[in-house]
Design a protein around this nucleic acid. Sequence first.
DNA 1: CTGTTAGCGCCTTCAG
DNA 2: CTGAAGGCGCTAACAG
Lengths: 343, 343
Amino acid sequence: MTLRITIADVAKKAEVSKSTVSQFLNGRFEYMGIKTRTRIEKAIKELDYQPNVVARSLKKKTTSTIGIIVANILHEFSTQVIRAIENVCHKNGISTIICNADDNPEKERIYIETLLAKQVDGLIVVPIRRNSDIYEKLVDENFPIVFLDRLVEGLPIDTVLLDNETASRIAVNHLIENGYERISIVTTSIIENITPRVERINGYKKALESNGLPIHLDYIKAMDITQLGEGINEIFSLREPPDAIISGNDLTLMEILKYTFENNIEIGKDVGLITIDEVSFSQIHNPPLTTVAQPTFQMGKETATILLNKINNKVDNQHSFIHRYKPTLIVRNSTQKEGVTNE
Amino acid sequence: MTLRITIADVAKKAEVSKSTVSQFLNGRFEYMGIKTRTRIEKAIKELDYQPNVVARSLKKKTTSTIGIIVANILHEFSTQVIRAIENVCHKNGISTIICNADDNPEKERIYIETLLAKQVDGLIVVPIRRNSDIYEKLVDENFPIVFLDRLVEGLPIDTVLLDNETASRIAVNHLIENGYERISIVTTSIIENITPRVERINGYKKALESNGLPIHLDYIKAMDITQLGEGINEIFSLREPPDAIISGNDLTLMEILKYTFENNIEIGKDVGLITIDEVSFSQIHNPPLTTVAQPTFQMGKETATILLNKINNKVDNQHSFIHRYKPTLIVRNSTQKEGVTNE
DNA sequence: CTGTTAGCGCCTTCAG
DNA sequence: CTGAAGGCGCTAACAG
C-alpha cells in the first residue's frame, strides 16, 4: 500500500502552511482569503487527500465512535435495536462498533476494555450483570454509558427497556379473553436474574392472580435454551397440560414451534400460543402468530439519543434513569381456538 | 470523564523510562531485568493502565481493524457470513466495523471513504458494482480487499461466492425428480447485473434445457422486492401457472409465502417450493421448506482468511481470484406433492 | 538491559 | 488573514 498523503502535502501544493489547511478542513473559513481557500480546495481535489482520523482522534481525544455490546445477537430484538441506533448515530456522524458478548461475562469484560482502549466516546450495552465493578468505575469516571433491555440494580445508569410486566399481562389477558384457561409460560434461564425474563414471569403471575386464576408452578419453565426442548416436553406430559403457552422471547418460540410441529400439536386449536417479541415470520407462519411486540425502533432511537446527549454534555439532571416502553399486542391466529380464516 | 493515565505515568511509577514500558507492553521481555518487569507489572495493575490504541495506531500505521460493507444486511446470508468473519478476526485480535450500504452506491462510497479515513487495515465488501473507480484505485494502491457474493468484472480482486448455477441446477433437478414440470423462478431485480441473481437465472435456464424442458419467459420474474408481490400474482394468473417455484433468496421467499398464504395455495401440493439460501424458520414452517443452502460459515471463514493473509503479506501469487463454493440441497416437505408425514 | 530521541498526522494557541 | 511551534500517547532505532 502506497503511503497516504498528508496535510503537509496539501499545504505544500497549495503553498500555504499546514495550519491553514487544518483550519480549512475544520470549516473555519472566517478569516481565510478566498483565493487561499480555493487553492486549498484545488490541492485537496488533485491529490485526492483524505484526512487521517486516527491522528485527529489522538489530538482531539474524541473518536466519533461509540461501542454497542449486546448480550446475544441471536435475538431479533438485538439486531432491530442496533439498526435503530445506527440510524441516529449515522445521522450525527458517529460510527458504531458492534460486539456480541454471547452471554459470556468474560467476553463482555474484554469487549468493554477493547472499546475503551479504542477510545470510543460512549457505550451502549445490554449488560450481562456480573461486571458491576467495571460499570461502577465507568460511572465514577463519568463515562457516557447507557444500558438497554436489562437493569443492573444500584447503578445510576440510564436504562431503556420494555415494560415487561405489562407485556405479560397483555398476553395473559388476551389468552383468557379467547377462552384459554391453563396458561403456561416458557422462558430462558433466570438463574442470572436477567431482567426481562424475571419481570415477564412476575407479570405473568400477577396477571393470573388478578384474573383469579391459580399459579401452577409446573406451568412455568425457565431454563437454558439447550434444555428447553425437554422442559417443553415435561409441560405437555403433565396430567393436565396447559391449553396455552406464552413464549418468553423469539428463541424460546423456536423451541416451542419445533416441539409442536414434531408432535403434531395444532397451534390455536390444541394449544394457544402467544410470543413476546415480534419475529420476522409471524405473518407467514401457519397459523400466523399472535405477538406482543416491543417498540424496538423507538427504543433504539431513544437509547442512542440519550447517549449522544451525554457525550455532548447536554444532560438534563432532572431525569429518571429508567425509561420504560409499552408493548403492543398484535393479534393473529395462533390464539384463536377456531382456526380463523384469513382476513 | 477524568483524564486517562498514560505510559508516562506508568514509567514514573515504575521508575523506568517510557520506552521500557512500551517494550513491556509489546512483549519484548528478552533483555529486560526480571525486577524491572515486575515493577512495571505492578505499576500497571495499581494504576489500572489501559494502552491507548489510537496513539499506537498512529505510530504503527495499522489499526488491527477491518471494515465489512454488505450490500444489504436484511439477507440472512449477510448476518451469517458476518458472524463467521468476526469469528476468525476475533481469534486474530482484529476488530471489525460493519456497514450496511442498503444497496445504495452512494452510501457504499461514503462508507469506503470513512473506513479508509479510519485507517482500517483491509476491507471485505459485497459490492454494489458502480464504484469501480474506487475499487480500481484501491487495487492500484495494493490495499487489502476481498469481495464476497458478487463479482465485478475486470478487477483483479479475490472474490468468494457461491456456485450459483449449480444451486439452480440442483433446485431444478430436485423439482423434476419430484414430479414438477412447470418450474418458475423468482428473484429480485437484475437491472444492476447482480451476480447471484443473474447466475441463478442462467443456471435455471441451462438446467431446464438439459432436462429437455422449454424455457417459458413468463415463468421468470426478476423485479424489485417492492413490486414482487404483483409479479408473483402475475405468475399465478397465467393461463397455465407453474406447478413449482424456485425462490431466488430469502427476501423473495417472504413475498412468495405471503402470497401463497393469502391465497390459500397449499405449498407442496398446489405448488412446489424450493428456496436458495437457508432461512431460520425453514424447519418449523408448515410445511418445512426445502432449501439449497450456501456454506455461509465456510465462505465467511475463507473470506476473512484471504484478507488477513493479504494484510500480513502472506499472499500466494499462484491463486485464482475466484473462489466458488458448492451449495447443499436440504430436502424437506415443500417439494413433496403428497404432504409427507413428519420423520 | 535501559534511556534518549525523534517522529506518526493532526490541531491549536499565539504571534505576526 | 496566515504561519511557527508544541504536543496528543505511543513506538522504534540507536546509544549507552
